[in-house]
Structures are given as C-alpha cells and as structure tokens.
Amino acid sequence: MTAPAPALPPAARRGLLARLRRGGLAYLFVLPTVLLLAWYAYYPAYIALTRAFTDWDGLNTPNFTGLENFRQAVTDPAMGQASLNSALWVGLGLGLAVIPPLLVAELIFHLRGPRRQYAYRTLFIVPIVIPSLVLLLVWGSFYRSDGLINQLLGTLHLGGLQREWLSDPHTALLSLIFLGFPYIDAFNLLLLYAGLQNIPGEVIEAARLDGATGWRRIWTIDLPLLGPQLRLIGLLAIIGNVQYFISPLVLTGGGPGNATTVPALLMYQTAVKFGQYGYAMSIAVMLLIVVVVLTLLSQRLGRLSQGARL
C-alpha cells in the first residue's frame, strides 16, 4: 500500500467507491453464468485437459504418462499431412465464411425498401431448418462419378474436367472444402447485414458526395466499419474449421489415403473409436494452442489493417 486510503483525494475516492459498487453489480450479472459454467463446463474441461498427460480410457483411474501422448501424436505418420490439410481448410474456410455472406449482405442492403430486403433475407435463412446432414447427403450424391457435377460437365462438352471427385486424392480435399455452394452462412449474413444497418447515415452521405459508390464504397466505408463483425466471423470461422471433421468423417473417412484427414478427425477417431481419451486430449490441447495463436494473430492483423485504413 503506497497510498493510505484517507490520503486519497475525494474525487478518486468516489471513483473507487463507484467502481466497486458498479463492479459489485457486474459480478451479480455474471454470477449465474459463472456458476452454471463452473459445474457443467469448467470442471469437465479441467478433467479432460489434465488427462492429456495420462493414459485415461474414460473409465479407470488414469496413470500419469507425462508427454508420451504428445510425442505419439507428433510422430503419428498421418499427423503431418493432416496438419497441412487443416491449414488449407482454415485458410480457404476463412474466405468462404466472409466473402459470400458479405456480398449477399451488400446486395440485400442495397435493395429498395425494407419489405424486399426482408423477403430476401428470409430466403437465405430458411435453409437452416434442414439438418446439415442432408447437405452432406446432397453433395455426396453431386460428387459421385455418375453424379450431377459430372453430368453437367458432360452436357457442357467438358468431359475432360470430369473427376472422381471424392476418391481422387488430388480433388478430394478441395471438394470437401468447397462443398455447399453458395456458402451463405445465415448467421454471418445476419451479422453483416445488421452491421451495415448500423453504419451512420452521415458517413454514407459524405461518401456519396465524395463519389464513393459501389465497390469503392464497400472497400473504403463498409469494410472498415464492419471491423468488429468481420473479426468475430473470422474468429468463429477459424475455431470452427480447426475443430471441423464432420464432412471427412461422413463422406470420405479421411481418405483416399490421408488426403482428407485433419487433426480433429484423428482426435475424434482416437477418442470415440479407440477409446484413447488421454491421447485424444493431447491432440485437443495442441489444437487449442494453435487456435489461441491464430486468434491473437488475427486480432493483431485486424487491428493493424484497420489502423492503416482509417
């Protein structure tokens, strides 16, 4: 204690009191969430994470094995290719999460009249009522050697482009990444659209007077002002894609060979198929570190680019 309380100037004392009082209320606001999470999320996560250093099988008392799991995971012959696949997926996935919804949000936002905008927004949101497994079923059939894509290529006399999309190691990974055209994630669309609506009218007026319309407006006004939304979408896309393994699991099983294997799939298989929960947790810990690093990096980049633009 460098400064005893009575020595504080009255204003500062009031500030501290106010801060404490306000802080007290804030704790009250956060309390229900924290209690719930402590029981249903933190404790289970703590159990799971600390067992990355054990041979836990999900039932018996785990034995401490040190870094053995990590060593095994790093030396797994499939891990190298899986990591590269995942890096490509995260990179391209970031673009797919941002660009198509942004373009559609801009198109809708520039439509005339709220009714029309409402109608089109609804059009893009309705598909989420169908379970995502149906989407995989649909695209699995599109990619078949006798499927819609090859049929279309045949009709267009582009037979040379026909491929065994999912069973050719050269096309399988990209086929999975680019599955789901037109890639309009409903949530990202809503978020960006709401962001566009929040841009102050004067800014748009001023830009228009400056002659900034169309693409230039998007580039100079919308993108910088959508910063928070874009960062959030980017963040969620990175986290989501690092952990994603459903389409490889359902459509290719990680094959041909390891062409579509990603670390999250290896983790899922070691846990759910082989019951090696300790080992799976060690992969999870490594993915967690990767995500944290990517997150910090993207935050920093986001801030840098924003600083440069404004």
């Binding site: 999470l37 249903y40 999320a41 933190y42 404790y43 289970p44 996560a45 159990i47 799971a48 994470l49 999900g58 986290i239 952990q243 999250a264 983790m267 899922y268 846990a271 759910v272 929960y277 799976a280 947790m281 999870a284 993915l287 967690l288 995500v291 944290v292």
Partner: peptide, 13 residues
C-alpha cells in the same frame, strides 16, 4: 470454452 470440442468432455459432463 469455445476451443474445447464437446465430445471430449462428454464423459465428465
């Protein structure tokens, strides 16, 4: 918490 896949915490949960 977003960074921990849910199937890994299924048993303790």
């Amino acid at each position: 918490l977003l960074l921990i896949p849910d199937f890994l915490t299924l048993i303790p949960l």
